[in-house]
Design a protein around this nucleic acid. Sequence first.
RNA 1: GCGUCCAUAGCUCAGCUGGAUAGAGCAUCGGCCUUCUAAGCCGAGGGUCAGAGGUUCGAAUCCUCUUGGACGUACCA
Length: 582
Amino acid sequence: MDKQKKQWLKLMGAALKKAAEDKGLDQSEFTDRIIVEHPPRPEMGDLAFPMFPFAKDFRTAPPTIAAAVIEALGEDIPGTVKTAGPYVNVFLDRSALIADLIADSSDETYGTSDLLAGQKIMVEFSCPNTNKPLHLGHLRNDAIGESISRILMASGAEVQKVNLINNRGVHICKSMLAYQKFGEGVTPESSGRKGDHLVGDFYVKFNQWSKEDETAEAQAQDMLRKWEEGDKGVVALWELMNKWTIDGISETYKNTNISFDRYYYESDTYLSGRDEVVKGLEAGVFYKDEDGSIRLDLSDIGMDTKVMLRSDGTSVYMTQDLGTAIARHGDFPFDRLIYVVGAEQEYHFQVLFHALKKLGYSWADMLFHLSYGMVNLPEGKMKSREGTVVDADDLLKTLSDMASEEIRNKDRAEAVGDVEETGQKIALAALHYFLLQVSPYKDMIFNPKESLSFNGNTGPYLQYMSARISSMLEKFEEKKEDYAGISPDYSVLSSDAEWELVKNLSSYPSAVRTAAADLNPSAVACHLYDTAKSFSRFYHDCPILGSDDKVLTVSRINLARAALQVLKNGFELVNIPFLSKM
RNA sequence: GCGUCCAUAGCUCAGCUGGAUAGAGCAUCGGCCUUCUAAGCCGAGGGUCAGAGGUUCGAAUCCUCUUGGACGUACCA
């Protein structure tokens, strides 16, 4: 559709100019002000050009201009035009557009572009703590980060996905301490408990214990100090338990199709961050406060001061992020670094970016905080203390089980083959679609009862449509000989349902472009829903294999194939597994 | 207090750079399985786009104020 839009913009520009000349006006910048739209109802046309903006220049009512423009367009145009009050509505040459679509959408490159060619973009996301398993909030982060990365790649950028493991700090020591006291040597192997959950259990245990024993917090601090000093026993335990957690979390990543090109560990970067702060102090960017801490003065951007290094010389979150950013630019000289991090850390990133700028790093302007909203429950925030946190693995398991049960209830077990595997893929579709259909920056509500549905505007609905197309195409392949030598004729695809589907499929690339420009996967997710819905209507209204007209069958098959390709390509971008059967 | 963000159907969410009668799903009610998978399709009801001003030929969209909410304003991450 892009091609046609551009073509019509040009035609419309020329026509406006001609109409202006006829009136004795000389307005050469008309073309910049032309707006293309889509009429609200299909029977009104495919493209709409409002004439309001030119009313002043022409000193005429828009409908009159519309008529003049149509006059100026003449007869020799690819399609037909009609005035609709102040609008010039265009009806595109359908068969030409369909032929273009079929040709363009033949493979996985449909929807990709070179919009960001040559750009190196680093995307940071997930960033778990190593003291507990992932929860629903992480799943949103992961879904956004992974999807954004894929969308940017599809737009031609060279993308590096990075994860920062927060494996250092007193919260880690709390799990360790509880393990020392109550663990009795239990391991993930001996208990059969997934490593991250096992470590998380001890984190919970610590919090219970600290209520009874008021020295608990101090003991944890003491352990952190020992860790920083390199105490062998503490470091060994730290390494062991970190491995458990990371192994467990990695399994969750694997189950959700999330991956990283590179891992950074806070334990590696906090020291280099400290060096940077010291350098910054010497350079006069930072200053030493009366209390001994090293700070950044932010009064120039209307904020207070911020601690870069504690008075005892230990590092804070900021210290570490400073070191990490600098290390990253060395590893991968990015044109853009996108931090996918919750909105509650906006202040932190403002300070971080400002600090880097003041330290003289020219690339500080290329840092971007993709600030996303929280996932809340109907009763409010998820609170670990109240045990209302939705665990990622539990949620996935619940969804998978529900999907598997659904398969059996519908007597599809035999058709799909591996019920459990299919169930997992349906679960992923449900989850990722649910998380990505919402604009990232908005808070969202997860209602377990309602959100776990597989009907309606959901991921499984999208999968269902792709599965139906697949099995139909399979059937077509079986009787392919019957259609040998039959060529498609797209002028036979004249129903509303077909045309709506064609228009949707044609605008898929622009949905991907929007998603890339706005860093918003929901543009793709929502477009795919429209695709599935359009296909569904087409499929319902238009017999394909059942038609006696072989030309019609072949033409519709090609359209269905295009729909499947769009769904498949889009699924890849929003991390929804494709199923040929369900 | 100050700062940032949000407010669209009973609920969960779309609504592209301002444009024609504001859209989906869920829920409610009513149709459709002798025909390509009913996880489907079709239809009905449901809206003062939080409120008030303003800009504009034209506002859910831009500006100002008010109200309600979230988050932040740590030598936590």
